[in-house]
């Protein structure tokens, strides 16, 4: 049986590892490489790395550094930030990324997703959606790390990208991100009910029950979390023991 993945997310800015609250006020958190080594030695299910600078400043991914990081990672390694072209994807996959995450570029050129799917397969494309809830309850997609509105509704965009060939959706609540107050279950449920590709819940986990809720109530296939693992004593391994108690199928190495 397929296991629910617990995925620590690393945000990388100027070679430091950072974590913000509601997509702002980045805090330095040491460097990326030691974090990857630790997570690798703890045998986590997968790691996601975001190059925030590349995404915000519209620069290319730093392939050399990503290669150095990938060399230390023997679990699935998913990389995002600054990916614009098919050639970017090819290079990232060749330096050690297993999957790539795209957000902003998909709005600029929606055909990029179908091109990547055709060339490298849907399974390596994670479409990232940063969702903000409006007062009327609608959710809108944002890009450039939550800095710019897109005018696209979350569910419409998710369906459009599934049809274009995205293999997974990484669904982040901008409002809940970094608050550690729990995932936006309404958002997650809205997308998981309508799509047939896996959805990774992101943004807001503060304790193990939040993780369980994202799976059991939200219907998420996987859980991405940063603050809970970086700023508290809580660990992916202990999270899995808790999830198992709650009846969620998880992997123990």
């Amino acid at each position: 049986m397929l296991k629910t993945r617990i995925i620590p997310t690393l945000l990388w800015k100027d070679l430091g590892l950072v974590k913000g609250v509601a997509f702002d006020s980045w805090r330095r958190l040491g460097t990326v490489l030691p974090a990857i080594k630790v997570y690798n030695s703890r045998d986590v299910d997968e790691l996601v790395l975001f190059d925030i600078i590349a995404s915000e400043e519209n620069t290319r991914p730093d392939f050399d550094i990503i290669e150095d990081l990938a060399m230390e990672c023997f679990v699935p390694f998913t990389v995002g930030g600054g990916i614009r072209t098919l050639e970017d994807v090819r290079t990232l996959l060749s330096v050690g990324a297993d999957k790539i995450v795209i957000n902003t570029a998909a709005f600029d050129s929606p055909q990029l997703i179908s091109q990547i799917a055709e060339r490298f397969g849907s399974q390596c494309i994670v479409l990232s959606i940063d969702a903000k809830r409006h007062s009327n309850g609608d959710y809108e997609c944002y890009r450039y790390c939550g800095k710019e509105k897109t005018g696209k509704g979350v569910l419409d965009w998710a369906k459009e990208m599934e049809n274009a060939g995205a293999g997974e959706i990484l669904l982040t609540s901008i409002d809940n991100d970094g608050t550690m107050n729990g995932y936006d279950l309404e958002l997650i449920k809205m997308v998981t009910q309508e799509l047939s590709i896996p959805v990774i819940a992101s943004g807001g986990a503060g304790n193990y029950q939040d993780l369980a809720d994202a799976v059991l109530l939200g219907g998420a296939e996987a859980i991405a979390a940063a603050s809970i693992f970086h700023f508290t004593e809580q660990t992916p391994q202990a999270a899995k023991l808790y999830l198992k108690e709650k009846g969620v199928s998880v992997r123990f190495s």
Binding site: M1, K3, D45, E46, E168, S196, P198, A222, R251
Partner: peptide, 10 residues
Amino acid sequence: TRIPHIGWNE
């Protein structure tokens, strides 16, 4: 069942 099949399985 969701496709692609992504993740750890027995």
